[in-house]
């Protein structure tokens, strides 16, 4: 009897210990581990993929590095876990990764039903169409009766159906498994148009042998706000990822770059810049970080504009324009709340 009471107590204690450790904050876990585990794409041009030497690079990867720099002081202290479209949210929910930075669209059901938190939007994307120029089409509204190459099992498939239904048009889908197959089918003439996210279309068009014979139609038929994701319930960790991202955006707004970072910190008289870079105030301490967290995050890969320009911007072969992703001061949607 006594023994079973003891065993029972031990079990309860063990369960409590597990429960308590489950409650431990992600920030503490990351600090204790000395490494940020970041869920990334298995390979998406410009946004996240390992290069020939196995180093991860890209627009989304830069967010991971900024967070690692802010929290751990080292942008290289990241372990990248490649996740597929099927495994990404479960990997996050089960604690296998601390955060996701892999072009995931923020939707109502993902936010609420899957118990995830989309902390920010680092890229505003939308679904577009690419057609052969000699098709003589200049608007997606003229695509009635067209055959369209589309990846199966994605939101793009549903968006396409919605768009054609709303405009009273018909189409024949040619379903493909992935991007490269779509490109192949499209080039072989199996379909009149190829639809996917506009960023993907631009990257595909940039690598076609005869890019000048293909045009991307002006219509964007869906909203695809892509951003980093964290687990529901650990608000402090969510805030850290969110504000690290906003620090990058604010840095661009204030003209703080990787190159003039130290100089700005030393000489700037702008109160918000001084608060951001930890010269005045104690913003970092409110999140459980030190004063220079944002400075390190910016030092990792530069501000938002620099990251954009070096990974997917117009100077790169991918050549994406800022468009919706320009700062709000320049007619875009990137808008960071004040650092105060």
């Amino acid at each position: 009897m006594k023994k079973s009471v003891f065993l029972g107590a031990a079990t309860v204690a063990g369960l409590l210990a597990v429960a308590v450790s489950a409650q431990a904050s992600t920030l503490d876990d990351v600090k204790a581990r000395g490494e940020l585990i970041c869920g990334v794409n298995t390979g998406l041009t410009g946004f996240g993929a390992p290069d020939a030497n196995g180093n991860y690079q890209g627009f989304d990867v830069a967010i991971c590095q900024a967070v690692a720099a802010a929290v751990l002081g080292d942008p290289a202290a990241v372990k990248y876990v490649p996740t597929t479209g099927e495994t990404r949210f479960t990997a996050l929910a089960s604690g296998e990764v601390d955060m996701l930075a892999r072009n995931s669209t923020w939707t109502f059901s993902r936010d609420n039903d899957l118990k995830l938190d989309f902390v920010a939007v680092n890229y505003y994307d939308g679904q577009g169409f690419m057609v052969h120029k000699d098709l003589g089409v200049s608007s997606a509204k003229e695509l009635d009766g067209a055959t369209i190459c589309i990846q199966t099992g994605t939101t793009t498939e549903l968006n396409l159906a919605d768009f054609f239904k709303a405009n009273g048009m018909s189409y024949t889908p040619v379903t493909v498994a992935d991007d490269s197959e779509a490109q192949r089918q499209y080039l072989a003439g199996a379909c009149d148009a190829f639809t996917t996210d506009a960023s993907g279309l631009a990257a595909t068009r940039a690598t076609l042998p005869d890019a000048e014979n293909h045009i991307i139609l002006p219509e964007i038929i869906s909203k695809e706000p892509l951003g980093p994701v964290v687990r529901h319930g650990d608000n402090n960790w969510g805030d850290i990822v969110r504000w690290t991202y906003y620090a990058l955006v604010t840095a661009e707004e204030k003209g703080i770059t990787q190159a003039n970072l130290d100089e700005t910190a030393a000489t700037s008289t702008d109160p918000e810049t001084r608060r951001l870079l930890g010269v005045d105030g104690d913003l970092g301490a409110m999140m459980g970080l030190d004063a220079e967290w944002a400075k390190r995050a910016i030092a990792a890969n530069g501000n938002y504009g620099e990251i954009f320009a070096s990974t997917i911007g117009e100077a790169t072969p991918i050549g994406l324009a800022r468009g919706l992703n320009a700062l709000w001061t320049q007619g875009g949607l990137q808008y960071a709340p004040p650092f105060r």
Partner: peptide, 11 residues
């Protein structure tokens, strides 16, 4: 997939 994600080898 990794190789194709490189802009040099896309396609």
């Amino acid at each position: 997939k990794i190789v194709r994600a490189d802009i040099n080898w896309k396609g």
